[in-house]
Every structure is written in C-alpha cells, then in structure tokens.
Computed example of a mutant assay.
Amino acid sequence: MSDNRLYLSQQPFIPAQRTAAGQSSGAGKKPVNAGVPFDQLLQQELNQVKFSQHALQRMNSRNINLSEADLSKLNNAVEKAGQKGARESLILMNDLALVVSVKNKTVITAMDGASMKDNVFTNIDSAVII
C-alpha cells in the first residue's frame, strides 16, 4: 500500500497586513524591475559575468572588491572581447588583472597590483585595458 496523504509545511501562512489606507504593507514600493518581462530579466542575468570558485577565493584572499560600476565595465570589456573573437582574455582594470573565459563569461582568476608583478600570463589570446 502506498501512502497518499498530503504533507503540508509546518510554517503558517500569514496574509499581508492592511494599513489604515487599505493598502497592503508592501504597497507603495515598486519592485526594482517592475514592468520588465521575465524573459528579458533572465537574459540580462545570463549575460552577466560570473566568477569561478578559484577567482572568488583569490579575490577574498587579496581583499579585492568590485563595485557595480566595476562590474558594468567588466561586462562591457568581456562583450567587446567576444565581438573580436577572443576566447581567453586578460582584462586590466585599475590596479587589477582578471583572466576571463570570454565564451563562458567567467572570471577564472583575479590579481591585485602587488600579485601581478613578475607574473607571466599564459593561455590568453587577447588583452583588454579598461
């Protein structure tokens, strides 16, 4: 015999609270991407540069932090490299060196200025300076 019972979550369902004006408590705040179709949002996310586990470890150990503006510049640089047919690119930005797989849009490794000195970059076919 099989068990045909339904098992419900133990967390209670709590409806949105109404304010004195009759609006739900979240009303008045528009979602960041209000009105943008889901497929467009998904495509934007898929086109963003990702970071490999190795790159994240290097960034953490070297205290490298990228701002939203830096990420935007990085995405543009990877896009330009891809348009030129690059596969593995060295991207120099401010005092950083990033090796990026252009095809996968993935940062492979990251170095700060101190780590860049006396290094040889191999397995790259292009360089982008931003």
Rank of each mutant, 00 (worst) to 15 (best):
L92R: 13
L66E: 06
A77I: 01
D70C: 06
V32R: 14
L71N: 11
V102R: 03
S25M: 14
T19G: 07
G82Y: 04
Q11K: 13
K105G: 02
N76H: 05
N47D: 11
D39V: 05
K80Q: 12
S67I: 09
M116S: 10
P12L: 07
N63A: 13
Q40P: 00
R18M: 13
L92N: 02
D95M: 04
K80I: 06
Q43W: 09
A114N: 13
E79D: 01
N60A: 11
L98T: 04
G113K: 13
R87V: 12
S61M: 12
L71W: 03
H54C: 09
K29E: 14
S67Y: 10
S72F: 05
V107L: 01
K80N: 12
A21R: 09
E88K: 13
E79F: 09
P15A: 02
S61E: 15
L74R: 07
L98S: 07
M116W: 01
P12N: 10
L8I: 11
N119R: 15
L71F: 08
L96D: 03
K84L: 05
V36C: 00
M111A: 07
P15E: 05
A27N: 12
D118I: 00
A127P: 09
M93Q: 08
E68L: 11
G113N: 10
M93T: 03
K117S: 10
A34M: 08
A16D: 09
A20M: 10
K80V: 08
Q10K: 13
Q17T: 13
T122D: 12
S89M: 13
H54F: 06
Q40F: 01
D3M: 02
S52K: 03
T122K: 14
N104E: 08
P37V: 06
V120H: 04
A20H: 06
L66A: 06
T122W: 04
L96T: 00
S52W: 02
I91R: 03
K73T: 11
Q48M: 12
D70M: 07
Q43S: 15
E68V: 14
S115N: 15
N33W: 04
L6Y: 08
I130K: 05
L66Q: 02
K30S: 14
F38L: 13
L92C: 04
S115D: 14
S126A: 14
D95W: 00
Q17D: 07
A21D: 15
K84A: 05
A20D: 15
T109G: 08
N47S: 15
V36M: 09
S52V: 03
V99Y: 03
I64N: 05
R62T: 05
G26N: 15
R5Q: 14
S101G: 13
D125M: 04
S52E: 05
L42C: 00
A97T: 08
I130H: 03
R58Y: 03
K103T: 07
S101Y: 07
S101Q: 02
N76E: 13
T109H: 09
T106K: 07
Q43K: 12
T109E: 07
N119G: 04
A69E: 12
Q23F: 09
Q23E: 14
N60C: 09
N75K: 10
N47W: 04
N65H: 11
V99L: 10
F121Q: 14
A77P: 00
E79P: 00
L90M: 08
N63M: 07
D125S: 03
R58G: 03
N47K: 11
I130A: 04
Q11S: 12
Q17E: 15
N119K: 15
V36Y: 01
Q44K: 10
S2E: 10
F51H: 10
M1D: 06
